[in-house]
């Protein structure tokens, strides 16, 4: 199953990729929202995991953009971020985020989340 991981930090991309690969997912990565939008049509992910704060296009804008496109309207989007503030969370929810995981990064928790939105 295809999962698109969007994060401007290579460390996070690698960590997430590593965890998901362990579970047998096919992972594609993108550096920010712009990059992600470029990759969704080709890769056709079943789940998108995204960071919130990224250059060029952040997670909120990405979510809105994905929700606006017919082919990605219902794709589950999980935010993986250190932001725990309620306001941002609400903003993400309103933008159309499916789930929200607060870092620190926890592999099993992440995989559970992906299963949770994709099973």
């Amino acid at each position: 199953m295809n999962v698109l991981v969007v994060d401007d930090s290579r460390t996070m991309r690698d960590l997430v990729t590593r965890e998901l690969c362990k579970e047998g997912y096919d992972v594609e990565t993108a550096e920010d929202g712009v990059d992600a939008l470029k990759k969704v049509s080709g890769f056709q992910p079943k789940v998108v995991i995204t960071d919130l704060n990224m250059p060029r296009m952040d997670g909120l804008q990405l979510t809105k953009a994905l929700r606006a496109r017919p082919e990605t309207r219902y794709i589950p989007i999980i935010f993986l971020t250190t932001e725990s503030g309620g306001e941002l969370r609400q903003a993400a929810r309103e933008a159309g985020a499916t789930g929200w995981i607060v870092k620190p990064f926890d592999g099993p928790k992440l995989c559970a989340a992906v299963r949770r939105v994709s099973s």
Binding site: R73, R115, V117
Partner: peptide, 16 residues
Amino acid sequence: YKRGDDIRNILATLSE
């Protein structure tokens, strides 16, 4: 559902 979620996901998670 507009947020791309699905009740089946939640049920599956619960079942775990």
